[in-house]
């Protein structure tokens, strides 16, 4: 029920945006987040974006894990 899925922003149109879920496109409501830019990743839950990150921020996680495993 609380499942949310990441998708990439293709185009922003006011309160909604077209996003891409690995091939499948959908319109989602973006009024719960600061307006995203094309190419950003957004986390989608029941048709609404609930969080936005840039590609670089997504890659950051991978680095953090590597650091933790090095310790």
């Amino acid at each position: 029920m609380c499942l949310a899925v990441p998708a990439q922003v293709i185009e922003v149109n006011g309160d909604t945006a077209t996003v891409d879920f690995g091939g499948v496109r959908r319109n989602v409501n973006i009024t719960l987040i600061d307006s995203p830019k094309n190419g950003d990743y957004v986390l989608i839950h029941v048709g609404y974006a609930i969080h936005r990150i840039s590609q670089e921020e997504a890659q950051e996680t991978l680095k953090i894990w590597e650091e933790m495993l090095k310790e």
Partner: peptide
């Protein structure tokens, strides 16, 4: 409307 904090904001919106 069911759900936790993840789902309640949409009802609010």
């Amino acid at each position: 409307a069911i759900g936790f904090e993840t789902t309640a904001p949409m009802t609010a919106q």
